[in-house]
């Protein structure tokens, strides 16, 4: 009910129940630029596998008993460097990847067909792509920009890896920097803009429903996830340029409650970095957030309570650089 300013304190239980290193995937020839989890399988059986990306290749790893991982397949992508893996929820035998030099220039799908036991590439989109997100039900939304205009588009994917349908979404004036699906609302999508606003779309009609300013406390916020509850829209944001303050520490994630009817907002929860441990790179899944600290540790938060629940210190082999 009340927006709390929670101090960044690591729960005592997190020290005891913190993250443990359970396995290592070693790929000495290729420094990792991204990692993601994917469902993979055949004949009705599927298991959670991992994909690691280097600039020129993607590797699929599967669990091997008892506690290790083996490389199942490698795709070589030598023409354009890999920038990121784009997770597509609820898909199987499919990896979506964004490629480019400094910015994303193309989005490709890599698909395995168990019927023909073969892999194939499919080019989904090209352009000067600023942001991309994979949504449930085989949908992908991206924003791209030319000198004159911005294009925001949703592509519905077919199981063979092609595009089944394309829906143009009305672009805001400002560049869209990130998208996030709204939990439990299939046709709603939120985005953040370069002008530090949250925008809301209707994915079915392509309408831009609302633009709501975030405020000046945390410039250039990035949205990760949104939930609609009791007539309010709760948006999980990270603050890549947030500054450390004495009272609140360094902000990692915040949950803002917006009233989409009026455009007004209030802070609902804030997750701060442990004192004296700056850091930024982060990711969100459901109501948990993770970030890499500059010290080389990984911190995990319960975003709705604004509490740091686990901390993984740097490993013997070095500092963590990326958390997914």
């Amino acid at each position: 009910d009340v927006a709390e300013q929670l101090t960044p304190v690591l729960l005592d239980s997190a020290r005891e129940e913190g993250l443990q290193l359970v396995s290592e995937l070693k790929d000495p020839w290729a420094p990792c630029v991204d990692v993601s989890a994917v469902w993979w399988g055949a004949g009705g059986r599927r298991e959670l596998c991992l994909v690691t990306a280097s600039e020129s290749a993607l590797s699929l790893w599967g669990p091997l008993p008892p506690h290790c991982w083996g490389k199942l397949y490698t795709w070589h992508l030598q023409e354009v460097p890999v920038i990121q893996i784009v997770p597509l929820p609820d898909t199987c035998n499919l990896v979506c990847v964004a490629l480019g030099e400094l910015e994303i220039g193309e989005i490709r799908l890599l698909i395995y067909s168990s019927e023909t036991d073969s892999f194939k590439h499919s080019l989904l989109k090209t352009g000067n792509i600023k942001a991309v997100v994979g949504l449930k039900d085989w949908r992908l939304v991206s924003s791209s920009r030319t000198m004159q205009e911005q294009q925001v588009e949703m592509v519905s994917l077919s199981e063979s890896g092609g595009s089944k349908d394309r829906q143009t979404l009305m672009p805001p004036e400002e560049t869209v920097t990130a998208f996030a699906e709204v939990e439990g609302m299939r046709e709603a999508l939120v985005g953040t803009t370069a002008g530090n606003s949250v925008v809301v779309w209707n994915l079915k009609t392509g309408q831009l429903l609302r633009k709501m300013h975030i405020g000046y406390s945390y410039p250039a916020s990035i949205c990760h996830r949104a939930y609609s509850d009791s007539g309010l829209l709760f948006v999980v944001l990270s603050h890549p340029h947030g500054k450390e303050s004495e009272c609140c520490g360094s902000p990692a994630f915040g949950v803002l409650a917006f009233n989409p009817r009026t455009g007004r907002s209030a802070a609902a929860a804030s997750s701060g970095l442990p004192p004296g441990q700056p850091g930024r790179q982060g990711d969100v899944w459901d109501t948990a957030g993770a970030a890499v600290l500059t010290s080389g540790a990984v911190a995990v938060w319960d975003l709705l309570r604004g509490r740091c629940t686990a901390l993984l210190p740097p490993g013997p082999a070095g500092h963590w650089a990326l958390a997914r």
């Binding site: 209707n202 009609t205 429903l209 309010l232 009817r261 007004r264 209030a266």
Partner: peptide
Amino acid sequence: CSESDLGPISLNWFEELSAEAPP
């Protein structure tokens, strides 16, 4: 977050905004 801070709340905000926004 109280209603006085955020203004009148509607459970059907998505449908209402979709009906009001330009097509």
